[in-house]
Simulated scan of single mutants.
Amino acid sequence: MTNQNFPRVLVTADHHFGHSSILRMGRAHFTDIDTHDEMLVAAWNAAVRPGDEVWHLGDFCYRCPPERAAKVFARLNGTKRLVVGNHDRGARHLPWASQHEGFVDTVLEGQRVTLCHYPMRAWQGVFRGAWHLFGHTHGLLEDTSQSCDVGVDRWGYRPATIAEIRARLAVTPDLPEERRRAAERDEGGDDA
């Protein structure tokens, strides 16, 4: 039986709070940016309990007035950590529990993970089962058995738990490119 009070780790990306142009890029079903932002806040809080930890992999808000960004941020459940994305100039001033440039290589709920706003073709530990979680592409790139787009466009506009990510990866048969190419090379033999 799962302890419902135990803090969980969730990962997400690409909310684009306050970014009205995002409505023309795959989110046209929202009537306006206020409706968009309210729905994303509701989806976040439905998925995240107050004691949970949330890693946001960039593009939290864009062209969003600082006061608006602060109000949205304050309404979101959980301890929030940022891995900076290309549209996070306006998010840097928010009271994140931690902020990271580039990527973070860490362990979340017993799983080694490389967190980055951008998708990678290779990452540390890939041959030993490490995952890579990313955003930025808004669902344009396919997952592999060890890498996953955690952007809200792929997860019902909400953060995903490590258990949910694990379940998605378990049914994704494609190996990461580096592992697949190494296997192809090794199968072909070394004639040199």
Rank of each mutant, 00 (worst) to 15 (best):
M120Q: 13
Y157D: 09
V41K: 12
H87M: 03
G135L: 08
W44Y: 05
A47I: 07
K80L: 12
A46Q: 09
G189L: 10
R168T: 09
N3S: 09
C148P: 07
V72K: 01
Y157C: 04
L140D: 08
G188W: 14
L57I: 08
L169H: 11
F127L: 04
A91I: 14
Y157A: 02
G110F: 02
T114W: 00
A97T: 06
V11F: 00
H15I: 05
A47M: 11
A130E: 01
D32N: 12
S21G: 08
C116K: 07
L10V: 05
T144D: 03
H117I: 13
R158Q: 14
F60Q: 11
Q4H: 14
G18I: 01
F103G: 07
R166P: 12
H138V: 10
N5G: 06
G102F: 11
Q111L: 01
A13G: 01
D186Y: 13
L133G: 02
A192R: 15
L169S: 07
P65T: 14
H138W: 02
F30G: 00
L115K: 00
F60A: 14
Y62E: 15
G156Q: 15
L140N: 10
V41D: 03
Y157E: 09
R168N: 10
H16P: 14
Q111F: 04
G189F: 12
M1W: 05
T35Y: 05
T172Q: 13
E177I: 11
D59L: 02
L169M: 07
V41A: 13
A97L: 04
C64F: 11
R49H: 03
D190I: 09
H132P: 02
R75F: 02
E187P: 00
R154W: 08
I33M: 04
E101M: 09
D153Y: 05
G129K: 00
D59S: 10
